[in-house]
Design a protein around this nucleic acid. Structure first.
Lengths: 200, 200
DNA sequence: ATCTTTCTAGAAAAACACTCTAGATCTCTG
DNA sequence: CAGAGATCTAGAGTGTTTTTCTAGAAAGAT
């Protein structure tokens, strides 16, 4: 990588890092162009050169962290052999991530994330669907092996991820009644019951 | 209610209705102060008198529809006698609502909704916690009766609502692979397996 | 009848995202 | 190794959007 490109990447990183700091400190409202340029020391022109718009910057930031989170989750999945242990690993990886990167997780779980990620068929889709299809790819053999019930994949995803995401949102929003350790202990067993092929 | 108050409420309603129309037509970006004042025929001053800010207006709109949605769901719950049928009624009520009020549901499921609803301890909390605690109140007896497993209430809520919300978000975002009728048939049984007290 | 409060109105101010031109730094080719 | 071309940095300037502020109309209270 040439020095010029290096500098470009470094500038983009400065902006992304600064944007997350600003978001953590001042929230969604405070995440303005001037706040980010001040916090990063990078000029307005550079911001627009690299990201095109403030939404572009937020989208890039969201995708970066969404990618990291889904990467953690998929890695945890792929290390697991049985469907049951995979669900446990997934839940732990997800909850670990939001505890370790609370601010980033808040951004990823924000409404903007849904929009940006899904709205128009841009590169967002690619970087999201890779992990999502990895998710489906991991479950497929377990369906065929008779461990997981042969439900439509969207339903399996909702049953497995829905409770975890719901709990994560609740914890992220600052509600005090959520004990993530307890959840990590109890949820996998319960999710397993909902998607397993065994008769009840 | 005095005529003056009546007019005030009518004006606020005009603004809320117009805001939803604007949102439905032009999306989140298009939901500006001037668009709402034009669409409603109400002046700028009135908007700020009633809602204080554009965010205040959006928050009020979100809470109004969130209240209606949770109201539908809780009503469906309360008509059910057994835990199992309650879960089925809840799922159907939820999915019916998002189909019937797609635009409002999009707003309610947007990121802004999480923020606004939970962030600061304002009246938002009250209008949300009423239905939520109604939810808990309905489940409590079924836990004590041994139908539902004695899990912490946040976990029960996540297990029951998480999959439904996840699927709803997916459908609302326009992904084509979700069949809500099929989901309404399959999900209740699966959710029931996850929270029921019976041994597996 | 006048005083007070609530509501409506829109001009003016402030904040904001974004564009545009200029110039610096690096690469690559003749 | 000179200089043409590409990429990146810089910030003043533009247009739009939110918000504030002052004024006045309508209703109820005394």
């Amino acid at each position: 990588m040439s020095p010029k490109q290096q500098r470009g990447v470094a500038t983009a990183d400065l902006l992304l890092d600064a944007a997350l700091r600003v978001y953590a400190e001042k929230g969604e409202q405070g995440l303005t162009v001037s706040a980010v340029t001040k916090a990063s020391g990078v000029s307005l022109g550079s911001l627009y050169h690299h990201f095109g718009s403030i939404d572009g910057l937020v989208e890039a930031l969201t995708l970066r962290w969404m990618g990291r989170m889904l990467g953690d989750v998929v890695t945890a999945l792929q290390r697991s052999r049985t469907a049951r242990s995979g669900i446990g690993a997934l839940v732990r990886a997800y909850l670990d991530f939001i505890q370790e990167h609370r601010d980033a997780a808040l951004l990823v779980h924000s409404p903007a994330a849904d929009r940006k990620g899904m709205a128009d068929g841009n590169q967002a889709r690619a970087s999201q669907e890779a992990p999502v299809s990895a998710f489906a790819a991991w479950f497929q053999p377990h369906i065929e092996a008779g461990e997981i019930a042969p439900l439509p994949m969207p339903l399996i995803e909702s049953l497995v991820l829905g409770p975890v995401i719901g709990l994560a949102r609740r914890w992220l929003s600052g509600i005090e009644d959520v004990d993530l350790d307890e959840a990590a202990r109890i949820l996998p067993e319960r999710i397993w019951r909902s998607v397993s092929a065994e008769p009840k």
